[in-house]
Design a protein around this nucleic acid. Structure first.
Lengths: 180, 180
DNA sequence: TAGCTACATGTCTATATTTACATATAGTGG
DNA sequence: CCACTATATGTAAATATAGACATGTAGCTA
């Protein structure tokens, strides 16, 4: 693939796993080529360079998979925000969750579209294994988005219920009292 | 809180949302203090400095919550690896998922412990809102881990089924054929 | 053929983050 | 009272990442 194609792949399929943009991709391709892990397999119009993996590159990927364990840390700014939600009024917290629901329903729809496209596509013996692995990752994306939406709806309800039970006394009011 | 306490908080409760370690935390505290968003509220043994948020700091957090939207990009190295799993033998792919299942079951158990501790704890009116918000985030952690484990078990089964149906012909063999 | 859009590739600067290095002390158990 | 552990705070260097800037072309349509 070319840098441009990779950038689009990262924007689409790989977005949930590893977001990377073109200012990272082009230097990375140069460095990989320098180390002999990829090579320019084709040059096209508009200075387009298509890269292909080398045998060493393929071995390096396998070494990475076999000899290192995944970094399981994860970052989720939306969840970080939830820790501070008590600094807002209940109605603001509710609209935070509404925004999350909308955004993730959109992502989910995108993944569902991808899956529908994938199912229609025919694979030869050579790409079938690749498509199979990508399908496993896609399934994770679908489940993640569905679960996130369920959670956000649940959380929204919790906030609304809490607001009703405290009878108009919103988190920030309590906070204002506490500060004195 | 002190830098040390914050580091432990990030290791525990905040780990799923925002992993940060002490070399980031100490300079960040210095910078926040410089900008008047926090101040040293107490000095203790071993050069311990306890910081507290200032009114400006609190306002800045609210501004962040109100005026910016969350960065919803996410990174998951394990899922990235799944895209390349077709480069391994089926039994290696299966043990990848086994490792994932074990690791995430451990994380899930940790979150469940946290929730059990939280439920036992009594909250005054001043910390109740904080605990409520943290509880929403914790619920996300629990759901995430449960869903991840379900997915990993499903994916493991898919790989095992595929291996049986291809009758010993593992992904790498196909690949070896393709390369010629 | 002019203008537009999508294609295509890069650099630069600032910031964020990780890993390794470096230091020191309070409290605890033997 | 000695050794150990957990507490506690930092810095330095390398790498990764984001956002802004910069450039140029192929192909299509009006």
């Amino acid at each position: 693939m070319s840098g441009y194609e990779l950038a689009r792949l990262f924007e689409g399929t790989l977005a949930r796993a590893w977001p990377a943009q073109h200012p990272q991709i082009y230097p990375a391709l140069a460095s990989l080529e320098e180390h002999g892990l990829i090579h320019v397999s084709e040059e096209g119009p508009r200075r387009r360079k298509t890269y292909a993996i080398t045998e060493e590159g393929r071995e390096e990927v396998q070494r990475w998979l076999r000899e290192t364990s995944p970094d399981r840390r994860s970052r989720n700014e939306a969840i970080l925000r939830v820790f501070f939600l008590w600094l807002l009024h209940a109605d603001e917290a509710i609209s935070f969750f509404d925004d999350e629901i909308v955004a993730h329903e959109r992502k989910l729809a995108g993944f569902e579209q991808t899956r529908a496209d994938d199912e229609r596509r025919q694979h030869g013996a050579d790409t079938e294994a690749v498509a199979f692995a990508a399908g496993l990752a896609l399934e994770w994306g679908l489940r993640y988005e569905r679960e996130y939406i369920e959670w956000a709806k649940w959380a929204r309800k919790q906030v609304a219920r809490r607001e009703r039970s405290s009878d108009g006394k919103c988190p920030q009011d309590e906070n204002a009292v506490r500060r004195q």
